[in-house]
Structure formats: C-alpha cells, structure tokens
Amino acid sequence: MANKTERTIFVIDDDSMQLQMLNDYLSQNYVIKIHQFKTGEEAIANLHLNPDMVILDYHLSLDNSAMNGVDVLKQIKIANPSTNVIILSGQDKISVAVECMKHGAYDYIVKSESAFARIENALARIGEHLSTVNQLKIYKLGFRIAIAAIVIISIISIILVKAGMASAKYWA
C-alpha cells in the first residue's frame, strides 16, 4: 500500500493495548505517519493534518458527554467526505456494522486475532483507490494543459495569419 507514498493515518482508540498493537503493526509494515488519539475530540481537533485514512474505535469513552465512534465518523465525513474510515469494534453485531457503513465507514472490523489481517486488506484496497484517484488527477491536469496549449497555439496562428494578410495588403 503505502510503501511508495507516505500517507497519514489517524488511530483513535481509548484501549492502550489496541493502540499500542496498531501502532507497532502499522509502523512495522507501512511507510506512514501515525497519529494516535485516545479521544474523538483530540482527533477532530487535528483534522487539519488531513489524514488519508482513519482507524476508529466504535466504543470510545465511558463519559456519556464524550464523542462516541459514530459521532467522530460523522465529523470526519463532514470535514472531508473522501477520508477513508475503518471502524474497529469489539461488537460482533450486524446492526452496529450497518449503522457505521450507513454513515460512510469504509469497513467494519471486529477486534479479534484476525483484525490485523483484515486491516491490512482494507489498507491495501484504500491505498490502491488513493493511487487511482491521484493518477486520475494527473491525467485531468495533463488534459487541461493540452487543451490550453491547443487554444494558445490556435490564437497565435490566427494572429500570425491576420498579420500576414495585413502585411500582404500593405505591400500590394
């Protein structure tokens, strides 16, 4: 995935063990900038760092007034709809997964022994998607430059033709 291009990733989880394992796993396997946050509020305050992807815990806090995973997901999507958010959860419930997907989550992964392999797959898919989007941007830019060049050449040609005709008239 990010072996060629360095990407920025947010990991948001209040579970120290999960946070540490994800940090070790991601920094071992990918060339990425990892920003860790224990609360959704901290992560939201740092959205100006423009994460390419976010790994977000569904259950974030004991405090009822604090943001939960879905609240954070909604805020991230409002700030930048193209940010890919992977929800990590201890809940193996389809209704919870559906709720997250409805709010724009890229994937829903249950915290278990297979979670890291699934995260790896999701990151690979996101990486491919981001590369395609970047390539598309480059093609679009190239196309615009080509059109601009054609227009400029056409204008110059018209000017030269007109100048040639005026000059021919003068000498005649």
């Binding site: 579970d15 063990m17 999960q18 394992m21 259950h59 004991l62 201890g90 915290k111 278990s112 022994e113």
Partner: peptide
C-alpha cells in the same frame, strides 16, 4: 452501563 463498558474493554484484550 458502566460495568458493561469496562467488561467490553476487557473482551477484546482477552481475545488477544
């Protein structure tokens, strides 16, 4: 509800 949240945190760590 608080017990539920504490136990929930332990669940994923127990899996690992």
């Amino acid at each position: 509800e608080v017990i539920k949240i504490h136990v929930h945190t332990l669940k994923s760590q127990c899996r690992y």
